[in-house]
């Protein structure tokens, strides 16, 4: 029989056709409902400018009639341009001034005391929670990129935006959002730890990249480049082997590769992508044993480190990650695709 009915309806597959008949009645067929009005940005700007002018006049009048006082928040008031925030559990410090909320402008740091958190709105693409004891600076915000700098502490971000629009720098690496939710921490020893709870994040430092998918965590040491992602549920022994390899202990690679299981394919892929040419055959052999590689991905190309082949293997291993919801990782099904998630 020729054709592939499941793919393009060529040929025949009675069981697929039967399921289509069974389930086709649930297909969506409703027309588009009336659309809400869009905000008229020009009008909003004009109105906003008027409000700002009036507010400024009032502020000047108040300032002119008041005596000496403590300085006002440095640009963190509601009229500033930037990311809106509110603190919980007490006041945060914006630009060095204690405040329960306002707007974080570009170039200004938001600091949370140990027992205070802050909710920060990331333009119109998402939000983040800044944990207690953290310092976050808005480096830039614009049509092409929203960029923050986490000096220390921890944040949890959830973003719905095109890839690479949301970026967070830490002292050790840069987290580039590819459509996801994640936790990012700058540890007390300066290492950066990233745990992805939805979608994909690219962690970059220098020329080295780590591709971190849902349910994986990666630790980066400043000056060394991103480490290798490890499944959140990986055994401590396996994680320790990964840490040794990341630390430059080449003797740990062989036992790591041998110990890798079905849930560790993304770890192996990152080692394949970032490793030396001499290391790739053994890594690929283990990957092949764990995951049925499509014929069109040639072993020679992968061992040679051809970027298209490496990226193609990543896409196959993570196929569905772009579709994966942002629910917490679930335990593996016994017959789950071994190449997807632990």
């Amino acid at each position: 029989m020729s054709g592939d009915y499941l793919w393009d309806r060529s040929g025949a597959d009675p069981e697929v056709a039967r399921l289509e008949g069974l389930l086709g009645g649930l297909a969506h067929d409703a027309p588009l409902a009336p659309l809400p009005p869009r905000r008229d940005r020009r009008r909003a700007l004009i109105v906003g400018a008027g409000v700002v002018v009036v507010a400024a006049a009032v502020a000047i009048a108040v300032w002119a009639t008041r005596g000496p006082r403590a300085p006002a928040p440095d640009g963190c008031g509601a009229g500033a341009a930037g990311f809106a925030f509110t603190s919980r559990g007490g006041p945060a410090r914006c630009g060095g001034v204690a405040t329960a909320g306002g707007v974080l402008p570009v170039g200004v740091a938001l600091e949370t005391p140990p027992d205070v958190t802050a909710e920060v709105t990331v333009a119109d693409i998402g939000a983040l929670t800044l944990a207690g004891g953290s310092e976050l600076t808005l480096a830039a915000t614009g049509a092409d990129q929203h960029r923050l700098r986490l000096a220390h502490g921890r944040l949890s971000a959830r973003v719905t935006a095109p890839p690479r629009l949301f970026v967070v720098d830490t002292p050790a690496a840069t987290a580039i959002d590819l459509g996801c939710a994640y936790d990012l921490a700058v540890l007390t020893d300066g290492r950066t730890q990233l745990t992805v709870t939805s979608g994909v994040v690219e962690l970059a430092a220098g020329a080295r990249l780590a591709h971190v998918t849902r349910g994986h965590t990666v630790t980066t040491v400043a000056g060394r480049g991103p480490g290798t992602p490890v499944a959140v549920g990986a055994s401590p022994a396996f994680a320790a082997l990964v840490a040794r390899v990341d630390g430059g202990d080449a003797s740990a690679l062989a036992p790591l590769v041998a110990a890798a299981g079905a849930g560790d394919t993304l770890t192996l892929w990152n080692l394949l992508a970032n490793g030396a040419a001499a290391e790739r055959p053994a890594i690929l052999a283990r990957l092949d044993a764990l995951f049925p590689r499509p014929e069109w991905l040639l072993a020679d190309d992968l061992v040679a480190g051809k970027p298209d082949a490496i990226a193609g293997l990543r896409d196959v291993l993570t196929s569905g990650v772009w579709l994966a919801p942002d629910a917490p990782p679930s335990p593996p099904s016994p017959d789950a695709n071994p190449g997807v998630w632990r």
């Binding site: 399921l19 389930l23 086709g24 297909a27 969506h28 569905g320 579709l323 994966a324 919801p325 679930s330």
Partner: peptide, 14 residues
Amino acid sequence: PEAYRETLLMRLVE
């Protein structure tokens, strides 16, 4: 598994 759910629904339902 999540990787297959949406794709099969697009194919078999939609």
